[in-house]
């Protein structure tokens, strides 16, 4: 949002001939690449616009460029962008020895623009494809709202990275508050959910809350996702298969996350068979909902580090799944 205040680099001044570095970098560094998807053009563009009118003499445009240290000036007539004058256009006119011509005589009329809602990665692509040094930014109604240069993008990404870092600090503080400031020989956060049989309308609510809790605790996104999928499949199993529902429990410790379900029947007659991919006892109704393909237990097993399944027909089933939390992605820092 802030206008460029520092002198531009040679690369920005010689925009058209300048080579892009940013897109290469973006592909090498994953977080930067991610940010270039997340950040939108309107978040990094400069909004302090310097424009020219078509009948303005070129010498005046050169003066605007010199004073504001910019290398391209959009040409606006009746609130509409009709072209752009770059330093290169001025150099061409200078070569012919005539700076008194009006802007309209030497401006570029076919202007490559970018929409303000696009992500920064689109701008990087456009820079790379066109070899332009700056792009006018337009809104949904094609109205000029700003300018973007590669420098703006670099600055935007750096600010976002800094914010990332600060957010991470806050998150870590919160997490360590739970697992470090509370001193015990073993601290465990237990979340318990009662799941009703055949309650398809609320199916997934508990898992949704569990996923949110893990995110708030600052757990690694990858681990959060694995837990979410495993616990969701387990929750659906309670809804689909049990007589009277069951209990879904999540235990969070600094070094591991334990997910378990207990129910009181009907029980699984043959666990080995139940673990076979594709084996299913689900009803047609359940299959119509996209479940019951016999992949639930297989999916769970894939997402967790250990899984234990015990069952007695007529008594019930107990499922325990664990995900180990590597030290560096810990919710908290130490092993309690």
């Amino acid at each position: 949002m802030c206008p460029p205040t520092k002198p531009q680099t040679e690369q920005e001044i010689y925009g058209r001939r300048g080579r892009t570095i940013t897109d290469r970098d973006a592909h090498d560094i994953s977080r930067v690449e991610e940010l270039s998807y997340d950040l939108k053009v309107h978040e990094v563009m400069s909004t302090e616009l310097r424009t020219a009118s078509p009948d303005m003499p070129l010498s005046e445009v050169l003066e605007i460029m010199r004073i504001h240290r910019i290398s391209g000036v959009p040409v606006v007539e009746n609130d509409e962008m009709v072209g752009i004058v770059s330093l290169e256009d001025v150099v061409h006119a200078l070569y012919k020895g005539n700076l008194d011509v009006p802007v309209s005589a030497c401006m570029t009329r076919e202007v490559v623009t970018i929409a303000n809602y696009e992500s920064v990665v689109k701008a990087i692509e456009t820079f790379s494809l066109t070899r332009l040094g700056r792009l006018p930014v337009v809104d949904e109604n094609n109205k000029l709202v700003g300018m973007i240069t590669k420098g703006d993008i670099t600055r935007g990404i750096l600010i976002a990275l800094q914010k990332d870092y600060q957010d991470e600090e806050v998150r870590r503080y919160r997490a360590s508050h739970l697992f470090e400031d509370i001193i015990s020989d073993r601290t465990t956060l237990v979340l318990r959910y009662n799941i009703k049989a055949r309650d398809f309308n609320h199916g997934g609510n508990a898992s949704s809350n569990i996923k949110r809790a893990l995110m708030r605790l600052g757990a690694d996104p990858q681990i959060t996702r694995r837990c979410g999928i495993a616990v969701y499949e387990a929750e659906m199993n309670l809804i689909i298969h049990t007589n009277n529902g069951g209990i879904l429990k999540l235990e969070v410790e600094p070094h591991r996350i334990t997910m378990s379900t207990v129910d009181d029947g009907p029980g699984i007659p043959d666990i080995t068979q139940a673990l076979q991919p594709g084996y299913s006892t689900a009803t047609e109704q359940v299959r119509e909902m996209g479940f019951g393909a016999g992949m639930g237990l297989v999916n769970m097993k894939r997402c967790v580090d250990t899984m234990e399944l015990e069952s007695t027909v007529g008594k019930g089933t107990k499922l325990v799944m664990r995900i180990l939390v590597p030290n560096e992605t810990l919710t908290g820092h130490s092993h309690g």
Binding site: F200, N201, G203, G204, N205, S207, S208, K211, R225, G228, I229, Y232, M236, M289, G290, F291
Partner: peptide
């Protein structure tokens, strides 16, 4: 609704 819950997970 399971489609949305699945998407979320």
């Amino acid at each position: 609704p399971q489609v949305v819950r699945t998407a979320q997970m």
